[in-house]
Simulated scan of single mutants.
Amino acid sequence: MDFASWPALLVVDVEGNGADPPDLVEVTLVPVREGRPDEGTGGAWLTQPRRPFTPFAAECTG
């Protein structure tokens, strides 16, 4: 597979606290260039949710 022909992508992952609707807890961004993650320019940010984590979310995320 020729990864050089892949378009540039931006992978986004978000995590919530398990509430309904969920409060945002973490956002992670990783650019993908030529089929490979560019970890040097990505980042992750934590936020303080307004409501506490649900037991289920705490169990899933540790």
Score class of each variant (00 low, 15 high):
Leu46Met: 12
Gly43Arg: 04
Arg50Gly: 15
Val30Lys: 00
Val11Phe: 02
Thr47Pro: 07
Val27Trp: 00
Gly43Cys: 07
Val14Gly: 04
Arg51Trp: 11
Leu10Thr: 09
Phe56Pro: 04
Ala4Arg: 11
Arg33Phe: 13
Trp45Lys: 15
Ala57Val: 07
Gly16His: 01
Asp38Leu: 10
Gly40Pro: 05
Glu15Gly: 00
Asp20Arg: 14
Gly18Asp: 03
Glu39Met: 11
Thr54Gln: 12
Pro21Thr: 05
Ala8Gln: 12
Gly35Arg: 01
Glu15Ser: 02
Val25Asn: 00
Thr28Leu: 02
Ala8Phe: 06
Phe3Lys: 07
Pro37Ser: 00
Ala44Thr: 15
Thr41Phe: 06
Arg50Glu: 15
Glu39Phe: 14
Thr41Met: 09
Thr41Lys: 10
Glu34Met: 11
Thr47Asn: 11
Asp20Val: 13
Phe56Gln: 14
Ala58Phe: 07
Leu10Gln: 04
Met1Gln: 05
Glu34Gly: 09
Leu9Asp: 01
Ala4Tyr: 10
Asp2Val: 08
Pro49Leu: 10
Trp6Glu: 12
Met1Trp: 06
Glu39Val: 14
Thr61Cys: 08
Asn17Phe: 03
Phe3Trp: 05
Gly43Thr: 05
Leu46Asn: 11
Ala44His: 09
Pro55Met: 06
Ser5Ala: 13
Arg33Gly: 08
Trp6Pro: 00
Leu24Thr: 06
Phe53Val: 05
Ser5Trp: 04
Pro55Ile: 08
Glu59Ile: 05
Glu26Ile: 00
Glu15Gln: 03
Leu10Cys: 05
Ala19Thr: 10
Gly62Arg: 14
Thr54Phe: 13
Gly62His: 12
Ala4Asp: 14
Cys60Gly: 06
Pro21Ala: 06
Pro7Asn: 07
Val12Met: 02
Gly18Val: 03
Trp6His: 07
Asp20Ser: 14
Pro31Ser: 01
Arg50Asn: 14
Glu26Val: 04
Asp13Tyr: 01
Leu46Lys: 14
Thr41Asp: 10
Pro52Ile: 09
